[in-house]
Design a binder for these strands. Structure first.
Lengths: 221, 221
DNA sequence: AAAATATTTTAGGTTTGCCTAAAATTATTT
DNA sequence: AAATAATTTTAGGCAAACCTAAAATATTTT
């Protein structure tokens, strides 16, 4: 894997994220995302095309090549590992990690990142719940997570309930929660590890730790 | 504290280190240190002078201003904390940390560095034995270190022996070690924590862990 | 103290990544 | 399908940080 400038890396990363929704990314979209001007985007697209990181024909938008995707996943791996480190080890707040990780992610030393990964215990998701690509760039698209481990404000869909007793099902029915219910945690209470969640249209519901331990979800996206 | 480019930071740091020996630094010295050309150095000196980070008159060499020194100590703080992190937490080898820290040091987020410092337990020296400046840029010029904690290949001078029994003094005399003796550790053995040290002119001597625990030294410089 | 040598600065050029304004192309209306 | 609007690209410039070659200054030698 060659080395890229901070600027090139930011473009690659932005294209990767944008092309998730659409298939192909436009000059204006990218300029908006990166807070730069369309003319600057065109400049960079020419350069990245020359480096074979993306497919691009004038006026036709662009998509990352396979090589470009590999580079993107590598940057995302660095970013999310640093986010995890900041939140888990340095006790940064959930909402402060992104900005700092934006800088750390550009220190591209493979050994550093692999050792950081090992030190952190090979985490699978960053503090926002997004999956962390492995050394090979493999990424788990949608893994199950226990409600206990679901980050605050991260939407997820109930996919499994481990205890099948009538008692738990009664409780879940009462709270209008079932497989397929989309929800997010609004607040976690350290005292008893209970939480308030929000489902689709309804107001908040309180979930005990015992209940949360039995509910598994998949991230949206 | 304002923000500086990576390049500016590298110049400031290099001047700080060079002016330790001499009082004033010359264009050629700095060019050699930074593997750049004298003309580039002159360019940068004008810029740093305009930013009041150094004193400089054409052809007369340069010295950091007080503000420049503060900036330098801040960069050195970041560098050494990252070195400590890499060696202590990520288990990098002693001789690999410097290069990686050269990159990490330029991520200048005060909160990041202060939290890193806290996470590491406010270490006083980096893995090379060099002191780590505190938040205010204060640096311990020459602190005592126990021989047990002296890094390999780092010269230091015996400044204190805690046990004053005749037995230890006999042993030290036999090995030609006394207050003022300059030595460095050549090898440490994990098995019994014994070590081989080298003093001035003489060949290596072996020191037991028990003995090392009673010898304190000051770093050279 | 003049000449020779070494150092430092100036002048002008390059690349990267950004910009504005104008031209080219594509998309949308009418 | 022409006209209008929106998007994208081109052309030409700018600042940072580097470069080479030549000029200016300082230092050393004779």
């Amino acid at each position: 894997m060659l080395n890229f400038s901070t600027s090139e890396e930011n473009y690659i990363k932005a294209i990767f994220h944008l092309q998730k929704e659409d298939g192909t990314v436009t000059t204006n979209e990218l300029a908006r995302e990166l807070k730069t001007k369309p003319a600057s985007v065109t400049d960079m697209m020419k350069k990245l095309k020359a480096k074979k990181l993306l497919h691009y024909e004038a006026y036709q938008g662009f998509r990352l090549s396979n090589e470009g995707k590999k580079v993107a996943l590598n940057i995302i791996r660095r970013h999310r590992l640093w986010e995890y480190f900041l939140a888990e080890k340095l006790k940064f707040n959930w909402d402060e990690v992104h900005e700092v990780a934006e800088h750390l992610e550009h220190v591209s030393n493979k050994k550093l990142i692999d050792k950081l990964d090992e030190f952190l215990g090979y985490p699978r998701n960053d503090p926002h719940g997004d999956p962390i690509p492995d050394q090979e760039g493999r990424i788990e698209t949608s893994r199950q997570v226990c409600l206990v481990d679901l980050p605050v404000n991260k939407q997820a869909i109930v996919s499994h309930v481990s205890d099948q007793s009538s008692e738990i099902l009664e409780l879940l029915k009462h709270k209008n929660i079932g497989i397929g219910t989309k929800l997010e945690i609004k607040k976690k209470f350290d005292f008893d590890h209970s939480m308030e969640i929000k489902t689709g249209r309804l107001p908040v519901a309180t979930i005990s730790e015992q209940l949360a331990k039995n509910i598994f979800l998949k991230y949206v996206n």
